[in-house]
Design a protein around this nucleic acid. Structure first.
Length: 439
RNA sequence: UCCUCGGUAGCUCAACGGUAGAGCAACCGGCUGUUAACCGGUUGGCUGCAGGUUCGAGUCCUGCCCGAGGAGCCA
């Protein structure tokens, strides 16, 4: 069935408008098909876009017409035809087919054929689900978010530094880690944060960030959790909490603006209302934990003062704003050991959580770090963490300690928010979750 | 780990304790500038697994398996 390739320049569907009136060669997959006696419509998908092809029986003859009309969904094909401007078509152009050359016919019925499948069915076939329109759009937005996070940090003078994936011990000592045997040196773990290593790198380069996969072995079963997800973690020397908040605000505004500029079509495919995204402009509201506590109470979601905010509280608070909310200065007891105590009030630490609007929840967690050696050693002891493992980390305070801080941004939650997706599992190509590691 | 809900045709779901059904998909035919096309027909089942109650279980009971949502934890 494989034909002899001739020296033909294949055209991308994304650039078809510039070829109006000309004959082109395309290649891709049969996305949808509607056939009748005289006319055949095949939507061709080539990865860059989708275009409807039109085949007339009287033009191509009975034999060809019958053969091409029988091509099942997801057959791979080459198409030769003339580009015609067509106001009735979705993309403004169509292809008048002269020839279709099948490359490979499916050997079984394509399983994803109607938009009424359950999440479990689709996740089991994630390798095929990626081809469908909305999933295609989500990954393109994700690509832009990924790229623009890098672009923003470079613009702000941050150097990319890769953090290790394998680590000797818990970074934060809170979450459960994926462990493995590491030769004769005992256990190693998949990283849950590159932050501590970024603190070291910040003392070498001033402003740094890492952006890589992160692993949490927690048995979380919610639409906001994955066991493997991607996190961007900037860290900067001489940064105080206000600087950390300004950086987070700048990053989110930059990313949203770039997605709006570059991914209009994809957001339309996702039926995402872009009006809320247009509002993502500085300044974001900044409220203290104490203010958040009062706000939650007023919104009918009270919780004990001193406790961490739960998902219902976060949702209730974020509903009262039209842009991300920064909640800062949480009680010491509910936050990680490395966060610096507030000199104004030692009951609190200099941290910030950024809650995305529209119910997605926390997308950023950050803080100013404890830069005083004695205070840090005390916190390590309070959290019952093994002091020996942190000797290198103490060195950062022994040799020229300075104020510094940073945050972690969850890529999938950010993409879920921007794309208006219910669940983070749709925002990563192959999600790893509590009960799923296939495909 | 806990709470709630679910598992029936390839898919999405119905079915009072009394002969397992519809829509979609697939296949065949018809028709149409179609676009979640439409119309007619055909095919399609160990009702998650194991036991129990009953004249009779998809339905009731017990245990297990699998999944979804939420809680906790976090990004």
């Amino acid at each position: 069935m494989r034909h002899n390739p001739v020296s033909v320049a294949f055209v991308s569907i994304a650039t078809l408008k510039g070829h109006a009136g000309r004959k082109v060669d395309l290649r891709g997959w049969v996305f949808t098909k509607r056939a009748s006696k005289k006319i055949l419509f095949i939507e061709l998908r080539d990865g860059a876009g989708i275009v409807q092809t039109v085949t007339a029986r009287e033009t191509v003859g009975d034999e060809h017409f019958t053969e091409w009309a029988s091509l099942p969904q997801e057959s791979s094909i080459e198409v030769s035809g003339v580009v015609r401007e067509e106001p009735r078509a979705k993309g403004g152009v169509e292809i008048d087919v002269q020839e279709i050359r099948p490359i490979s016919r499916p050997t079984a019925e394509y399983p994803i054929n109607k938009p009424d499948h359950s999440p479990d069915f689709l996740l089991e076939r994630r390798h095929l689900w990626l081809r469908s329109k909305k999933q295609w759009a989500v990954l393109r937005v994700r690509d832009t978010v990924f790229h623009e996070i890098h672009a923003f940090f470079r613009k702000e003078g941050f150097l990319h530094v890769s953090a290790p994936i394998l680590t000797p011990a818990a970074c934060e000592g809170t979450s459960t880690l994926f462990g493995m045997d590491y030769f004769d040196q005992g256990k190693a773990y998949l990283t849950q944060s590159g932050q501590l290593y970024m603190e070291a790198a910040a003392m070498a380069h001033g402003r740094v960030y890492c952006f890589g996969p992160t692993f949490r072995a927690e048995k979380s079963k919610t639409r906001r959790h994955l066991t493997e997800f991607w996190m961007a973690e900037p860290e900067a020397a001489f940064y105080e909490l206000d600087d950390v908040m300004a950086l987070a605000e700048g990053l989110l505004c930059h990313v949203v603006a770039r997605v709006l500029a570059q991914r209009r079509d994809e957001l339309a495919i996702l039926e995402r209302d872009t009006a809320p995204l247009e509002k993502i402009q500085p300044p974001f509201p900044r409220i203290s934990y104490t203010e958040a506590h009062a706000l939650a109470e007023k919104a009918g979601e009270p919780f004990p003062f001193g406790d961490d905010l739960g998902a219902p509280q976060e949702t209730a608070i974020s509903k009262q704003f039209d842009r991300p909310v920064m909640i800062h200065r949480y009680p010491t007891g509910v936050k990680a050991f490395y966060m610096k105590q507030d000199p104004q009030d030692p009951r609190f630490v200099l941290c910030v959580d950024v809650i995305a609007p529209e119910g997605v929840g926390e997308i950023i967690g950050g803080s100013q770090r404890e830069d005083d050696l004695a205070a840090l050693e005390k916190r390590i002891a309070e959290h019952k963490l093994p002091k020996e493992a942190f000797e290198w980390y103490f060195d950062l305070r022994r040799f020229g300690s300075v104020a510094h801080g940073g945050f972690g941004l969850g890529l999938e939650r950010t993409v879920a928010w921007i794309c208006g997706r219910e669940h983070v599992r749709e925002t990563i190509p192959f999600p790893r979750m509590l009960y799923r590691i296939y495909p």
